[in-house]
């Protein structure tokens, strides 16, 4: 039997990689993909908790997380398209009209 701690470590590793991608990349699409990566890391930990504590509610929470992630991806990509129409770049450093 694989201990629960291993799953949590895996989840922490994936979440940290998502944070790394979000903070160090400047491409807006890859930043959005890093957010998806973090949500997936949370899902891994929720489902492993649900398996080890023998309660299905963790999986229901993961189900809601997946639904919200789908909504977030749709809205985020729509914002990216609207942004790209105004300024033909994917680099967030070049989108600085509001910096003053």
């Amino acid at each position: 039997m694989v201990p629960l701690q291993w799953y949590l470590w895996l989840s922490i590793a994936v979440f940290s990689i998502g944070v790394l991608g979000f903070l160090s990349r400047r491409n807006i699409i890859i930043m959005l993909m890093s957010i998806e990566l973090m949500l997936n890391a949370v899902n891994i930990s929720l489902i492993s908790f649900s398996h080890y504590i023998q309660d299905l509610r963790g999986q229901i929470l993961a189900f809601f997380v997946i639904a919200v992630a789908a909504a977030e991806a749709a809205i985020g990509l729509a914002i990216i398209i609207a942004l790209f129409r105004n300024k033909a770049t994917a680099n967030v450093d070049e989108i600085r009209e509001m910096r003053g």
């Binding site: 949590l8 944070v19 790394l20 991608g21 979000f22």
Partner: peptide, 22 residues
């Protein structure tokens, strides 16, 4: 990858904090 020092610092901090909390 341009802003890697910030990213790596924050990532290591979050990683250590979460490992300790687990």
């Amino acid at each position: 990858i341009t802003a890697w020092p910030t990213g790596v610092t924050f990532t290591i901090g979050i990683f250590i904090a979460m490992i300790y909390s687990v």
